[in-house]
């Protein structure tokens, strides 16, 4: 038995070796506690709430997209949050995109098709900075994966604007946000009043609701494969567990041959 105890101890050490340092990164130096939001896509079996993601797209389209691009998304990708082909075509056609050059060598505008990338608010980064007091609104496609805390952080950020505490001076053109690292953010509060968007499904558009919806949409945009990935993972683990049982039984049976040839204890 001593032999197995050693083996186990060492295996535990190895597991710690593998995971401890990575976990250690997760703590930022600045102690900010994010409120833990209950999102539909959390947990092993969580899926994106389609209605919420669609409302979130509406928030993005009517509010965020004034400044933030999502350059890795095409309109056709919206099928992933439950829009059908006709709805996607109709959504896309609301936007004018540049195409060309045509036979005369000129660029021209046309309504977007499902295959087009999301229209960008600015032609280039310099234009984006010029329009935003020198700050560059980041692309939002993978924002949920690019921040500690993911969707929880985005939701917290969107509802985290408040008056600066006494003694704190906010620089010109900046805004105080209790969840932003350093607390001074260039983005003015984007969701600032109830009913800022009108939801077609009758959901009350509170700031918190809009923020949750757009966070859900952005979580989907960052990981559109999430549902497929997890369901494949569950099947993979069931398969490996069964196969592992069989392989272990085979190993036992083979090694039993070795034991037969020795005197019984």
């Amino acid at each position: 038995m001593r032999r197995y105890a050693t083996t186990l101890k060492a295996a535990a050490l190895a597991a710690a070796l593998a995971l401890a340092p990575a976990g250690a990164w997760a703590q930022g130096h600045d102690e900010i506690h994010l409120p833990d939001t209950k999102f539909s896509f959390e947990g092993v079996f969580g899926t994106f709430d389609r209605a919420s993601a669609q409302r979130g797209f509406q928030v993005y389209k009517e509010v965020c997209s004034a400044c933030h691009a999502m350059r890795h998304l095409s309109y056709r990708h919206l099928r992933g949050i439950g829009f059908n082909e006709a709805q996607v075509a109709a959504l896309a056609s609301q936007f004018q995109v540049q195409d060309g050059p045509n036979d005369n060598g000129e660029m021209f505008e046309r309504p977007a098709r499902a295959s087009d990338h999301f229209r960008r608010p600015f032609p280039n980064d310099a234009a984006a900075r010029a329009a935003n007091n020198g700050a560059l609104p980041p692309d939002l496609t993978v924002m949920v994966k690019a921040r500690e805390g993911g969707a929880d952080y985005l939701h917290a950020l969107l509802i985290g604007y408040e008056e600066p505490p006494p003694g704190v001076t906010v620089a010109n053109g900046m805004h105080y946000n209790k969840y932003f690292p350093g607390h001074q953010i260039a983005m003015p509060p984007p969701l600032n009043s109830e009913g800022q968007v009108t939801y077609a499904d009758g959901t009350k558009a509170t700031v918190d609701q809009m923020s949750q919806d757009v966070s859900t949409f952005l979580a989907w945009a960052a990981e559109p494969e999430l549902e497929q990935r997890r369901s494949m993972g569950v099947r993979m683990i069931i398969y490996l567990a069964i196969l592992g049982g069989l392989v272990f039984a085979v190993k036992k049976k083979i090694w039993a041959r070795l034991h037969q040839t020795e005197p019984a204890p």
Partner: peptide, 26 residues
């Protein structure tokens, strides 16, 4: 067949750990 079978057990355990990371915490 002794160590081919014993290594196979290890391979399945390895794939299980690998699968948990890839599919659930990539």
């Amino acid at each position: 067949p002794y160590y081919t079978s014993k290594d196979s057990v290890g391979i399945i355990v390895y794939l299980l750990v690998f699968a948990v990371i890839v599919f659930f915490m990539p």
